[in-house]
């Protein structure tokens, strides 16, 4: 069975025009939410989270509820039939009978692509291992648009775990298609941006970029600083995780050299890579970034269910 309906596995699945349409819809939802409050009445979203996640799952669920729809699902693999040895694809085939659209997270890369081959309803990738996390990217793009006023001519710094940071990979992929982007990758040598991103995005779109391991040397030039956590669950080796965990910590001392209109983003959860003292700085946008994520998920659900308001 081949899924012919529109899904979202990778931010690349949508053209820039489609992403801009989603941003417009999200901005409209923000300005007049009551217009959308029954848009998905009678529709059901299944949130299938084979890997625990609070933020993304609740964001999807809040998005569907705010659209007047309902939600079913599970929040970890241990409460699903995979615990009994059921394959992901079998689980998806079953759930496809109960829902109109699925948002899923799975620790294995490419799981949503495999899932979509076993159902005829839209699948949204809510994160597949260290690979992609396109709905985070949609929220990030809306954050950038709303907080800087533009989606072009930006110097964007990505800091932290650039090897396993799926939010980084998806965002680089999306921003790379907008005009006038410059990227600065700040990471230890062990956590550099992967070659497939360099080949597939940076070289493909001729995007100027530099790599460094010192945040202090580049922070003055940045319009956006996107921080990430070094994620324990991506490491096979505890010693490597412990060694790299505290490599970068953003604090007010480092920020004194940054632009006044810099925006600081983070996919959250934050551990200690951004000092709490930064939270009150007007440049810190990582909490409002969560709100924007929900609005973009609302716009996405409407698009994939072909609902026009």
């Amino acid at each position: 069975m081949e899924n012919k309906v529109r899904c979202l596995f990778d931010i690349d699945d949508f053209s820039i025009e489609e992403i801009n349409e989603l941003i417009s819809t999200a901005e409209d939802i923000i300005s007049q939410p009551q217009k959308y409050q029954n848009a998905c009445a009678g529709k059901r979203l299944a949130t299938l989270f084979f890997e625990p996640s609070t933020r993304t799952r609740l964001s999807f669920e809040a998005a569907m509820i705010d659209l007047g729809g309902s939600v079913i699902g599970f929040s970890e693999a241990s409460s699903s039939s995979t615990q009994k040895g059921e394959s992901v694809t079998d689980t998806i085939r079953v759930v496809g009978s109960f829902a109109d659209i699925i948002a899923m997270r799975h620790p294995k890369e490419g799981a949503p692509v495999a899932a979509a081959r076993k159902t005829i309803i839209p699948i949204i990738n809510g994160g597949d291992g260290g690979h992609n996390h396109p709905t985070q990217t949609l929220g990030d793009l809306l954050t950038i648009k709303k907080e800087t006023g533009r989606l072009e001519n930006l110097t964007v710094g990505f800091c932290g775990d650039l090897t396993f940071g799926r939010t980084i990979h998806s965002l680089v992929n999306a921003l790379g298609r907008y005009k006038g982007m410059n990227f600065v990758f700040i990471s230890p040598a062990e956590l550099k941006i992967p070659d497939y991103i360099k080949e597939g995005v940076l070289q493909n779109y001729n995007i100027p970029y530099m790599e460094t391991n010192r945040i202090e040397s580049v922070i003055t030039n940045l319009d956006i600083l996107y921080m990430t956590r070094v994620q324990k669950e991506r490491f096979f080796n505890e010693a490597d995780y412990m060694r790299l965990r505290d490599y970068y910590i953003l604090d007010l001392e480092k920020l004194q050299f940054a632009k006044k209109d810099l925006i600081i983003m983070h996919p959250l959860p934050r551990v200690n890579e951004i000092a709490v003292e930064v939270d009150d700085d007007p440049r810190a946008k990582y909490f409002i970034q969560v709100d924007y994520g929900k609005y973009m998920r609302m716009a996405l659900i409407l698009k994939l269910l072909n609902i026009e308001v």
Partner: peptide, 10 residues
């Protein structure tokens, strides 16, 4: 980390 490493039917 690929899904094909655990889903034998793929």
């Amino acid at each position: 980390r690929c899904i094909t490493s655990t889903e034998s039917n793929l």
